[in-house]
């Protein structure tokens, strides 16, 4: 047998210097061979549309780093670990639903509260869908597989949250009327209700943020933290106040995903700020461009919380959101000294 003459102990192109790579590193590092390739990322004509798209929105982004490969997802999630984690979390979520369904929880809800759910909670699936597909965009344009994969898993997290809302829409409709499970009704709220319009304007515009780093900043540092705080904290608290513990607990459960999301997006933001002196200015520039729209969106939605039987005033909702987003912002911004 004229086999190979030597054996290898690790990837020849991802040698960590006498350190055994862990499973995450083995299946993540150096996967984006196409980033920065000459004359173009992909083996079609360099001027073909998608080569040009990547050259403009990825290689051409104002935010750059010397080696994107140095960034790792703090949770070190590869597919296998993500799936195992979420398998456990879904079992938990199913048990939550089981428990409340056994108590016929929905039937006991105040119709005035169900109306709030119909106006705020159920149409939120449109917003989550935008977060889902924008995460897929960030993932496909990201300069390293660590960012791509984390962003793809995040997209799946949004789909998870969205599907539980769809589940709840149907189950609520069984005791509170078929309109709740009518997409046309939810879509009308999303498209026409004044409380949703600033959010819709923001999210429709988010889909047009094509520079990958702007998309990351807008989605992960500005828009999503605010929406997550609004729904998974402020609205969950409102649900509890209105004796809808099922909604509250499902939102909290989804909040676990959001926390994991902030771990990697915060870490990436810190990495970006430290990578090159100019990056800070771009990130903060984008942040200041997107923040006013987010503020308007949150304000308009916060106004609906007052219609609940046990209401919350808009100011306190805003405060909850501000507190959460400021805390997250500090975690990546103030951790890095300005240069």
């Amino acid at each position: 047998m004229t086999g190979p003459t030597r054996s290898l102990r690790t990837w020849s192109i991802a040698d960590a210097g006498r350190r055994r790579l862990n499973e995450y590193e083995i299946v993540t590092k150096k996967f984006h061979y196409h980033f920065g390739r000459q004359p173009a990322p992909f083996d079609l004509d360099p001027d073909s549309p998608i080569n040009q798209w990547y050259l403009r929105h990825r290689e051409g982004s104002p935010v750059q780093a010397d080696s994107w490969e140095e960034f790792s997802d703090p949770a070190q999630l590869n597919y296998r670990r993500y799936i195992a984690l979420q398998h456990d979390r879904e079992i938990y979520a199913e048990r939550v639903v089981d428990r409340f369904e056994a108590l016929d929880h929905d039937a006991g809800l105040d119709p005035a509260w169900v109306a709030v759910l119909g106006r705020v909670y159920l149409p939120a699936r449109f917003a989550l869908h935008v977060l889902q597909i924008t995460s897929l965009y960030v993932g496909q344009l990201a300069p390293s597989a660590a960012i791509t994969n984390a962003s793809f898993f995040q997209a799946a997290d949004e789909l998870r949250a969205l599907q539980w809302i769809a589940y709840r829409a149907k189950s609520l409709s069984l005791s509170h009327g078929p309109d709740l499970a009518d997409s046309t009704v939810a879509r009308r709220v999303w498209e026409q209700d004044p409380a949703w319009q600033p959010a819709r304007e923001l999210l429709e515009n988010l889909l047009l943020a094509y520079d990958w780093a702007e998309a990351f900043t807008a989605l992960d540092l500005v828009v999503k933290p605010a929406f997550d705080a609004l729904f998974k904290q402020a609205f969950a608290a409102l649900a509890t106040a209105n004796r809808d513990e099922l909604t509250a607990q499902l939102l909290h459960e989804s909040g676990v995903d959001s926390g994991r999301g902030q771990d990697w997006t915060g870490a990436l933001a810190r990495y970006i700020l430290a990578a090159r002196p100019g990056n800070r200015e771009h990130i903060l520039g984008w942040e200041s461009r997107w923040q006013p729209r987010v503020t308007r969106a949150i304000d308009a939605l916060a106004g609906t919380f007052g219609a609940a039987p046990a209401p919350a005033d808009a100011a306190s909702v805003r405060q909850t959101v501000d507190q959460a987003t400021t805390q997250f912002r500090n975690s990546w911004l103030t951790a890095v000294p300005a240069t």
């Binding site: 102990r9 006498r18 350190r19 055994r20 790579l21 862990n22």
Partner: peptide, 9 residues
């Protein structure tokens, strides 16, 4: 030696 036994081995 440390060359036989990498970190993680």
């Amino acid at each position: 030696t440390l060359d036989d036994l990498w970190e993680g081995d």
